[in-house]
Amino acid sequence: MSIIVQDSGLLTILQTLDPEPSAKGNEYNGACDRLAHQLANQLVGNDKAAPTVEMTHQHSIIKFTEPTVIAFSGAGFKAKSGGREIFLNRIYLFDRGDELEFIPQKKGNRIYLAVAGGLKTEGSNVMKSGDEIIMCRDYTAHHDELFNMMKRRSEVNWGVDTYALVEVYLSDVYHIVRRPDVPDEIYEKLESGEYTVRNEKNRVALYVDGPEIALQDTGIEHAGVKGGVHIADSQPVLALNDFNKVTTAPQVGTIPSYHLHKLSQKSTGSKIQFKAIDAADAHANLYAHHLWMKSLFKAIDYKLSKELVKEKM
């Protein structure tokens, strides 16, 4: 049995946490929003790296064919199933025939849907309307407990509160790590005004408009790294997961990994402000972010185990 992608929306893709080679020619270049990917998995008791369904901008409608425990995460989404309101970062049980439809919101661009026991696909990992995603059913004892609990109430009354994630997703300020070969004036220019997202080439790059950057092309061929900020037609282009491996567009810096969650949630019309920092500051921020993520996952485990113990009493 499987879950059915009733309507694939703009881009629905089964995605791994980290880039993975695929014998079938699928592109597993990693989840754009690594936090949401891991959060959804953690809520349903999966390994944090298990594949999730990544849905971009115009989201899919999912149909369930058997009792399925799910959670979805992202930046500010809601969904509905029949007359039932479904919230992000909570655990739900859906039954055979249930449909889950995501409601477009002003903020946020990507949703990550995790299914307890994991997901896989036999064909392409890019889903089209009517495609099925196979449920792996790699159930652990923890999953069994979770199913038993959910059978009695089909949803829990707690989840990861939006306020807990505000610090990660709300701010429009993006750090950019300086390069030694880029003059200070470029960073001053980048910081001088606000940029607006013009459009996104799916999972490849975000194109923004704002103060023009006059950077001389030195003819250097750069590696395309995730978060890389390149200049094309005097405007910044921000590299996402599927960006070119090689580019001649001059690179002015790189957005650190802890700001890539919110970068991947930007949609057309969103605002971006750059703040240039050094690598040492980026590493200090990264470690603080790492500790915060660890505590968040521990809190989910604690809350879940408390619920399961309560259920047994």
Partner: peptide, 16 residues
């Protein structure tokens, strides 16, 4: 030159 290219990469770059 060798430098930190963001927080997860180190890049060695030469003109030639």
């Amino acid at each position: 030159m060798i430098f930190a290219n963001g927080d997860c990469h180190i890049t060695y770059q030469q003109e030639k």
